[in-house]
Design a binder for these strands. Structure first.
Lengths: 150, 150
DNA sequence: CGTGAAATTCTTAGGGA
DNA sequence: TCCCTAAGAATTTCACG
C-alpha cells in the first residue's frame, strides 16, 4: 500500500509538516507536482489523519500530567465511558486496555487541585472508579511513528 | 505570559499547523504580518516545540500499541533507562512516574511478535523488569492541549 | 510524472499609533 | 513596542504533454 516514496514523504511530513513541497521533493527525489499529488492522496485516503503543533506544556500552563485508569462501578450498565468523557478537554487520550482497569486516560492539567477536580469530574460523568498515576518527568513524547520502509 | 491573541494563535495552530497566515489572521483578527511575527516568536521562544503529522497507525502497519511499565532490576546501579532506550524507535513516549514502577513507556508495533521482541530489547538494553498493558482500542489520542485563555 | 503559468502565500522593509 | 501596508520573492495549484 505504501511504496518507498510514500514512506519517505510520510517520514518527512511527520517530522516537519510545514516543509514546502520543494523541500519534500528534494528529500524524496521526485518532482514537486508528483509529491503534491501523493501528499494529497495520503491526506484524503486517511493515512495522514491530521497535523498538530506540539506545545511546551509548561509554557502553556499544563505542567502536571497523569495516567488515570478507570473502571465502571456497575458492570451491568452499558459502558460508554469514552463518549461520556470526551467533553473534558484535559483528557488527551483514551484507550481501552487489557488489564485490571477498563480504560486508561492520559490527562494534562495545571495544578494538583486541577487534577483533583478533573478526577471528580471523571467519576461523576462516567460512574467509574479511578486509579491515578502522576507523571513526575517526561523524558520524551510525541516521537513520530517510525515507518518500516523508511 | 500569553495574551489572548497568542492563545488564539496557539489554539488554531494546534489544530491545523498548515493553515496559511491569512487563515490564522482571519481567526485571530490581526494582520498577516503581526500574526507572522507572533508565530515566529512563539516558535523561537519554545512555546511551540515543533509540528507533527498524525498518521493512521493501522495504515502504516502499527496496529498494536501498549503501555510498558519498567523498573530497574538493580536499584543500586545508576538509572539512566530513558537514554538507554531512546534508540528504540517503537517507543513513542517515556515518562517517569509516581507508583510501583519507575517509568512508563507508550509503544507502537505491528504484531504481537514485534511486541515480544521489543520487550526483550527493552529488558536487555536497560536492565529492567517490565509490566505490559496491551491497548485493545484507542478511542481518541493526540487531542490538542486546551488553553486557558482560549 | 514533469513542465509551465497563474493564483495565492510568505517575507521583508518602511511608516504610524 | 506593536501593528499595518506594500512590493518582491517564494510557493501552491492545476491544466497539459
Amino acid at each position: 500500500m505504501d511504496d518507498p516514496v510514500d514512506a519517505a514523504i510520510l517520514t518527512e511530513v511527520s517530522r516537519d509538516p510545514r516543509a514546502t513541497l520543494a523541500q519534500l521533493s528534494e528529500s524524496v527525489g521526485l518532482g514537486v507536482s508528483a509529491v503534491q499529488a501523493r501528499l494529497r492522496r495520503l491526506e484524503h485516503s486517511g493515512v495522514i489523519v491530521g497535523y498538530r503543533a506540539i506545545l511546551d506544556p509548561e509554557a502553556v500552563g499544563k505542567s502536571l500530567s497523569a495516567f488515570i485508569e478507570i473502571t465502571p462501578l456497575d458492570p451491568s450498565q452499558p459502558d460508554n465511558a469514552p463518549e461520556l468523557l470526551e467533553h473534558l478537554a484535559e483528557i488527551e487520550a483514551c484507550h481501552s486496555i487489557a488489564g485490571d482497569a477498563s480504560y486508561i486516560l492520559f490527562v494534562r492539567v495545571g495544578t494538583p487541585r486541577d487534577l483533583e477536580a478533573l478526577i471528580r469530574d471523571i467519576r461523576l460523568a462516567a460512574s467509574v472508579s479511578t486509579r491515578t498515576t502522576v507523571v513526575l518527568q517526561t523524558f520524551y513524547e510525541n516521537r513520530p511513528i517510525s515507518l518500516p520502509g523508511a
